[in-house]
Design a protein around this nucleic acid. Structure first.
Lengths: 338, 338
DNA sequence: CTGTTAGCGCCTTCAG
DNA sequence: CTGAAGGCGCTAACAG
């Protein structure tokens, strides 16, 4: 049988209320009765029924995250973010409720369900779209949330990495090594950060006096395989690039595959750079030059912020912008062949 | 304001009961009223309050997992398992409740809380100990669970990988390449799978007519750094091993670091092999020979089993044992130097 | 210091 | 076919 307050109350010959208050540590309970109640609770292994508590208190001490099903598995990015959020949530005594969903309509309705059904106190969301219905919904519902990423309408608490500066430094680095034909594999335009990263690319080329060439600008889907195919197209050009910047590490790894597949050597014949610095990046062959996003820490800080929002405490900074770090490894190693 | 059954009932001029039944799809509601109620619910964006529902129905459609905090971040193993479980949970309409906890007492009490507080319908647990208090607790509480791994008392539903055979094949492979001085870096003895993997090691050496040497058997903590230190000790021996088998990939990667650090070449001077085949394993330099555990699929299947247990349906197989696959890459590449 | 009362939102008898 | 009543387990006034 389940042990409830009632069980304890009967055992102690007291009312449910008193037991509740004693266990909650209220001051207005006789110290002796309190001790007695606690002892019984302990002995019976009492655990409060959280469903009941949530129903009453409208609080769940649970944070929700929706994971898009497609990128779920193959996406170290999400996993790392999740780790950071989960780690910090534990710190505050919060649990994490995960719902894996197909992106799109289902995903949005997962948010709707989570929020309206009082299962969570707040939401962390990632991979912000330029025009994001999830954010629109959460704002409208006035439900606490923090996003990893800015969108067009960014009047909400977020933490983001300055992707423009990140890619700028990356391209600058490649230019310094003598590259002039520098291609970029963009992420989908719908994602908010794509614009920023592209901007960094443009600015760096501009300052180096290199004209933007449409043929060197391609778009893919953030997967390794997508990166491989995009790179293939670039390498098949009559005048192929000597350096390829991918908007994330997974696509950069795919790019390396493509380069090897056509018999060229990464870092010697074609330089490659990524973005994220996922764990694997340090172990690729050759190790990948990239821009480090401290995803794990971002997860932790996002949760810090979210807890403030939930408690309706003022945030010291509602908009955090981190400057990413350039990590130079061997994939951008040698100057271009010519 | 929150939309509840009451809101809809007032709007429709009906009782809460009828609304509830209409929305639940009971047959005993006039088709017209039903339609009208559904329309109102839709218009108002009604979402049932799950806390209330759980309180009533004693069901949560939620699966719980406790993640040990230490190995959380650095552990691709858990992340992959999580992905598989989450993926399949979505299939059944279940959500995932994660609680990150310090291993030990706190971890156990997290299980206690989850179970007794009616927050979840079932539990998936991993990294089974030889003598596992969590399993003892779940069995005693008669709470649905499925484990990834067998323990000493294995009268519970589990799915496991035949680690003995896995390591056996690994060592057999090394022997075939001419190695005789083969060391093993074990995982902690408290973990159930350590015994099995060690057994595979013993059997393979035995069949090859190689005597077991205590100096070649060391133990570490499944982390990369731990692997590095353990390998260091092995390499400092007067007669160091020509091949090192680590009980997981993380330690194998640490081993490669140690080998490089003392100026030797992995795969040429010293062969290295791991266990798991984490995503990074294919990208290490050189790529890591290992034993593939289909962790993602295991997560999915564990969830399939768990759903059966929850529904009190009979399991076709309460004990699943998968035979892992040997993945030969370059880290075990060349025959020993001598 | 303790007990009574009320209700969170939902579902399920049991009567009409 | 519909409604009234009761209760899941907990907490928060409000009295004594």
């Amino acid at each position: 049988m389940k042990v409830t307050l009632k069980t304890i109350a009967e055992e102690a010959g007291l009312s449910i209320t008193t037991v509740s208050r004693a266990l909650a540590g209220y001051g207005d309970v006789n110290e002796d009765t309190r001790r007695r109640i606690v002892a019984i609770a302990q002995r019976l292994g009492y655990q409060p029924n959280l469903a009941a508590r949530h129903l009453r208190s409208k609080q769940t001490r649970t944070i929700g995250m929706v994971i898009p099903l497609t990128s779920y598995f193959s996406d170290p990015f999400f996993m790392e973010l999740l780790s950071g959020v989960g780690r910090q949530a534990a710190e505050y005594g919060y649990d994490l409720l995960l719902s894996a969903q197909q992106p799109g309509e289902e995903e949005l309705s997962a948010y709707r369900r989570m929020v309206a059904s009082s299962r969570i106190d707040g939401v962390v969301l990632a991979r912000v779209l330029a025009d994001d219905p999830r954010i629109a919904f959460l704002k409208e519902a006035r439900h606490p949330f923090v996003a990893f990423g800015r969108s067009n309408a960014n009047d909400y608490p977020y933490i983001d990495v300055d992707g423009a500066t990140g890619v700028y430094r990356l391209v600058e680095h490649l230019v310094a090594r003598g590259h002039r034909r520098i291609a970029i594999i963009l992420s989908p335009r719908t994602l908010a950060f794509t614009t920023a990263r592209f901007e960094g690319y443009q600015r760096a080329l501009n300052e180096a006096g290199i004209a933007l060439a449409g043929q060197y600008i391609v778009e893919s889907d953030l997967t390794q395989e997508g990166g491989r195919m995009a790179a293939q197209r670039l390498l098949d050009l009559p005048s192929p690039p000597t350096a390829i910047v991918a908007c994330n590490d997974a696509m950069a790894i795919g790019t390396m595959q493509a380069i090897r597949a056509c018999g060229r050597v990464v870092g010697r014949d074609v330089a490659v750079a990524g973005f994220d610095d996922i764990p694997t990046a340090a172990f690729t062959d050759p190790p990948l030059t990239t821009v480090r996003q401290p995803i794990y820490d971002i997860g932790r800080r996002a949760l810090d912020m979210l807890v403030c929002v939930i408690r309706q405490e003022p945030l010291d900074e509602a908009h955090v912008l981190l400057v990413p770090e350039l990590i130079v490894r061997q994939s951008s190693g040698a100057p271009p062949s010519r």
